[in-house]
Design a protein around this nucleic acid. Structure first.
Length: 298
DNA sequence: GAAACGTGGTA
DNA sequence: TTACCAAGTTT
């Protein structure tokens, strides 16, 4: 009689376990549909920088319908993209995305480049985003390291409760786990991010449902608490970021240029208010008309 | 390498 | 209510 050979779990590669888990656990996010092109992927990746998926989804749908190609976005005004960005936060990303679109039109014939160095040369595109676009937009087997992946590697490989700051070695760490087949390597990249986003989360990891709990260095070490300096969380209340946000909020909502007096109500401290308005002007998020009124750049 | 850069949900 | 955190990049 024949017998089924069951390999010990340790013989199954960690990458295969994570990829197989992803097949059954992946969220159905719109930018993961197979017909989504590299431009729409780039838009999603920039929007997702420091902004949760739930808030990105509706805005991404609007953008990809309104500006389906880089040339379309390059032809839009800053005011249009700033308004369409809504309240995703860090609105300089919207300007940079428009600048990236213009660079794609000028330097790449309107086609999102495939090569990581060319992607990284685009405004607002750094190490993470360049690899994410190459990998998810073009199916290139790039190692992709975001905050989720760094946390998974910190625990699974290094036995640490938390990831430290981003390091150059992060790319090598995840590349060492990646499967050799290009298509599986792409799945592995998105699957590792998903594992960090859904299971190996920052606050209270759901180790009970983790597919690699039996081989996680952190778990095997008894889930030791984080040692070392606590990560400082950035303040928001009272900062220039808050003030800038309020100023821009007024200008986004205004149908016409507004006088400075209309901005006074946003923040009591006139010195800080003025500094923030200046910085918005410098950033190209606001412009002043000839008669001294303020508006989003036309 | 540290600090700046928005916003809102969750515990 | 305060604190943490969310697919980073730029200076």
């Amino acid at each position: 009689m024949t017998s089924v050979r069951v390999e010990p779990s340790s013989k199954v590669s960690t990458a295969d376990v994570i990829v197989d888990w992803y097949a059954g656990a992946a969220r159905n996010l719109p930018w993961r549909r197979p017909d989504v092109d590299a431009w729409a992927v780039l838009v999603s990746e920039v929007m997702l920088q420091q902004t949760p998926v739930a808030r990105v989804e509706p805005v991404w749908r609007d953008w990809t319908v309104r500006w389906p190609t880089p040339a379309d976005l390059a032809a839009a005004t800053p005011a249009e993209v700033i308004r369409a960005w809504g309240k995703l936060g860090y609105p300089r990303r919207a300007l940079r995305l428009r600048e990236a679109a213009a660079a794609i039109v000028e330097r790449h014939d309107g086609v999102v480049p495939r090569a990581v160095p060319e992607l990284e040369a685009l405004p607002g595109v750094g190490t993470y985003t360049a690899r994410a676009v190459a990998c998810f937009g073009y199916g290139s087997p790039q190692p992709v390291v975001d905050t989720n992946v760094r946390r998974v590697v910190a625990r699974l490989v290094h036995g640490q409760a938390e990831a430290g700051n981003a390091r150059t070695a992060d790319l090598a760490d995840i590349a060492a786990l990646a499967p050799p087949e290009p298509e599986r390597a792409v799945r592995f990249s998105v699957a590792t991010m998903e594992l960090g986003a859904l299971v190996c989360v920052a606050g209270a990891p759901r180790c009970g449902v983790c597919p690699v709990r039996d081989r996680c260095a952190w778990r095997l070490a008894g889930s030791p608490a984080h040692t070392g300096p606590p990560r400082r969380v950035q303040k928001f209340t009272g900062t220039d970021r808050q003030v800038r946000g309020r100023l821009l909020d007024v200008l986004r909502a205004a149908a016409h240029p507004v006088p400075a007096s209309e901005l006074d109500a946003t923040w009591a401290d006139a010195v800080q208010r003025s500094r923030c308005l200046d910085s918005l002007l410098t950033d190209g998020l606001v412009e002043q008309t000839d008669d001294g009124l303020f508006r989003l750049p036309q």
